[in-house]
């Protein structure tokens, strides 16, 4: 078995083993996990909608932009607090994508990394590692948004 672990026969054996493992591994109940993700993700959005309406009602002078900003700030802060108290990962175990796709998941990813590396100090731990998990989102967001901005700017110049 050790001889030529990348030989033809080993590759065939590995392919056979992979399909066997695929078949024997227990699957998470797809429908159940989809429904849970739907419910928890949907609920997060409804709460945000309610918050937005509430803020707009309480402060009628605020612009729509600012209402949105306040809403997301409140959501983020609550998610960070939930992470601190240790609730968020318990919810997420059920919610799956329903808990990591909304902005609350972004906040959880950031604060969980910040908390985790507290033991290495606030500078080299928390501050360095805070973007450990959310880094890909922020970096890709900035890069592709910039590309989008430039493309639209060029289109604007052409069509003027």
């Amino acid at each position: 078995m050790a001889a030529g672990w990348k030989s033809e026969s080993a590759i065939r054996r590995n392919a056979r083993y992979s399909s066997y493992v695929e078949a024997i591994s227990p699957k998470s109940g797809t429908l159940k996990s989809l429904l849970k993700a739907f419910a928890i993700g949907g609920l997060t959005c409804v709460i945000s909608e309610l918050l937005g309406d509430g803020i707009a009602l309480a402060f009628p002078d605020l612009s729509t932009e600012l209402v949105g900003a306040y809403t997301s700030m409140i959501l983020v802060t609550v998610a960070v607090l939930f992470t601190g108290f240790g609730f968020y990962d318990v919810i997420a175990r059920h919610g799956g994508a329903g808990s990591f796709l909304p902005i609350t998941g972004f906040a959880n990813a950031m604060s969980s990394a910040a908390l985790e590396y507290k033991s290495e100090g606030l500078i080299f731990g928390t501050s360095v590692k805070m973007f450990n998990v959310v880094g890909p989102v922020v970096v890709n967001g900035i890069v592709w948004a910039t590309v989008a901005g430039i493309i639209r700017y060029i289109i604007m110049l052409i069509t003027l």
């Binding site: 968020y88 985790e116 590396y117």
Partner: peptide, 17 residues
Amino acid sequence: ERQYRYPLEYGCQRPPY
């Protein structure tokens, strides 16, 4: 968990296997 996976409080699901 810290060395091989995610932060402890990070909400993620694990597959049943």
